[in-house]
Each structure stands twice: as C-alpha cells, then as structure tokens.
Design a protein around this nucleic acid. Sequence first.
DNA 1: CTGCATTTTTGATTTAAATCATCACTTTAA
DNA 2: TTAAAGTGATGATTTAAATCAAAAATGCAG
Lengths: 194, 194
Amino acid sequence: MSNFEAFFDYIQKISGKLLSEDDKHLLTAHFKPRKLRKRQYFLQEGDVCKYIGFIVKGSARTFTVDEKGHEHILKLSVENWWLTDFESFYRLTPSRFNIEALEELEILQSTNAEIEEFLKHILAFSAMSNVISQNNTIAAQKRMQAINYSAEERYEELVSNYPHFLQRFPQNMIASYLGLSSETLSRIKKNALK
Amino acid sequence: MSNFEAFFDYIQKISGKLLSEDDKHLLTAHFKPRKLRKRQYFLQEGDVCKYIGFIVKGSARTFTVDEKGHEHILKLSVENWWLTDFESFYRLTPSRFNIEALEELEILQSTNAEIEEFLKHILAFSAMSNVISQNNTIAAQKRMQAINYSAEERYEELVSNYPHFLQRFPQNMIASYLGLSSETLSRIKKNALK
DNA sequence: CTGCATTTTTGATTTAAATCATCACTTTAA
DNA sequence: TTAAAGTGATGATTTAAATCAAAAATGCAG
C-alpha cells in the first residue's frame, strides 16, 4: 500500500537507517490506516489521547478553548508530521486539547503500547524517535523566545520557517496560531508588502 | 565523591533503572566536575556549546540580547537540571544564547561524543534520555500556550509550577523570564496579595 | 554602622495590539 | 439560486503592558 511507502521513506530518511522486511511487516501490522473528514475530531478535550497518527495526507489543528470561549491554535500539522497530544499519549492523562481535521485527513495510527514495541525492536524507529526528540527540544527552545517577539516578528518568523502555511491555511487560523487577532495579522500583511 | 552520588541517584530515579558499578565507573571517568563563580559564563553567544552540564549546586540563566541591547531570559536552571544549548550542542552550530552562573555553580560536564557513548552503553542513561525527551516535548507543548496568556496568567502559572523560583531569583530575573517588564511584575504581585 | 549599588515600588505617559463595528467578497449548503 | 456562513479588509475606540522618571527599600563592602 502506497501509504506505507511514504511512511517507510520518512522513517529511513529521518533515522538515517534502513528498515528490514521484518521491520516493515511489523509496522504494517500495527499501524492502522484511518481517514477523517474535514472538521472531524481526532481528539476531544477531556479524553485520553490513545493514538498517535502519522499524517499521510491532509492537515489538522491542535487548539484549546479558553473560559471566554475563544479558540487558540497551538499547532498546525501537515503531511509527514505526527499527530497526538504527547502529554496525554505518554502519561495517559485526559487532554486539554482538541485536534481537528482541517482538510480530508489520512493517517496511519498506532497506540502507546505498540510504539513501545517498535522502539524496542526496530532500530530505525528508535533512531527516528531520538532525532525527533532532539528536534522537539530545539523547537521548544525556539518557541520560548517567541514570548519576547512582537506581532510583526512572529509573523516574519512564520514566513521564513513555514512559508507554505500561508498558502495552505486561512488567515484567521494563522492569526490564532501566532496568538494574534485576525485584524492585526491583516494589517501586518498590508504593511509587509511595502 | 558525593557529587556523583546525587548524579547517580538522579539517573536511577528518572530512568527507573539501576546503574551497575561499571556504569558508574564509566560516568565518573567522563563527567568532569567544574565550578563557575557567580557571573561566570558557561556559554557565550557565537560559540559552539561543546558541553552539557548536570547542575550539582547553584543556578544559571540562559538569555539572549536583542538589537536594542535588552536581555531576555529563556530559562532559569537549578540543581538536578541539565545545562546546555541543545541546538548548538546536538548540531555543533554557533549558539545564539548566553548561559551565565547566577550563583556559585557546581556542575558535572561532558561532551556530545561522550554522551553518545553513554546512550549506547548505559541502559539507565538511555532510558533517562528518553524520559527527559518526553518531558521536554510536554514542556514545549505547555510553553506554546504561553503566547495566549496575559501577564497575570503567566505569573500565576509560574507560582504554581515553580514556587521556589520566587524565593531564589531576583524579581527582575523572573520578570525577564516571564517576558514582562519588572514594573509590570511588581504591580501584578501587589494585586495578587489581595 | 555607613554609604553606594542594586532592586523594587509607585506614578504619569505612550504604544502595540485587542476589541468593536461595518462592508465586501467568496464558499458552502439548503 | 438564494440564504447563510466564513473570510478578509479597514476604521474608531479601548485596554494591557511598555516606557520613562523618580522615589523607597534592600543588600553589601569597607
């Protein structure tokens, strides 16, 4: 199934190691293909996030709803990204987040217990996990700096890091992701053209 | 050496695994004790962060200096925390950060190449590394939410997560860590008393 | 204990960004 | 095909927090 080919390529590329035929069979046996329609929820606030999904096609947003009923997007996810609430997934605690498909979404999903097995038995998988952990740690460091950035600076950072997001997601989603009102983002874009 | 006892305890506690005598010898042979005086730099902007340090005693701050010459604290670190710029340390790229001792600082330090060896040969060490990665990923998720928090909310979050920081660090450092001016923090504290 | 540094508090003013309101335009759905 | 909902732009107003300025409190080195 071509879904899995992209997945295998991804693992091999990130880890720098090859998957054996046995590895591939093990992954194919335990990662379940799943489709979600636009607006469908992968995770709802209050539920334990039992699954982690590898995005084959489509996109999703992770968001919270505050006391005033306002939504705040924490993450926008696209192809070849992992989809989960790591805290809830690792610790089996109820999630504070919602994860919703923004477009028709195709994922390969698995459970915590299965992931533990892959880590133990598939060399490329655990190497990939380490690389992703490093990347996450680095991304976290960068994110921490964002507190001190102005609206313009946060926008500029997005433009340079994820330029394709601007085409792919509506402006109000981008604004929410940047922690801005959509009016402010609209004005920033106008000024940026000059 | 009692320095190492605390370090071993930490590894065993976090990993949930025991260190063998061989493991301990390997760690003792490669982690070098080092002392830094107050105000001394562990890392300067522009340098590659060659070391990772485990804090035995004391505290440090990780900060950047912006174009206007203003300092922004990204991280405050205390006993039993790791001290490094992970991006620079993992990727061997010049760092954008400064790391400075805030108090007399005692660490056990090691290099990237040595850490790789520990990960390969010491089961408890690699288990610890995985747990820390999970924690980092979760912390990163939480930090991302901070963008949407008001000054008060960020302060309240600090109070509940790291209450001892308030005793240990001067208020202007806390303010910088929260991304606030020290005047604003002073006013928040006054209001919070009511 | 004393005098100077640093840190914290307090007040007045400015500024960046949110909010509120409206309009135009485009999808989506009935 | 028409209404309804979603999206984006723009202007007026409000608000949270920064900045500027100066006084009080604290901490130390001699």
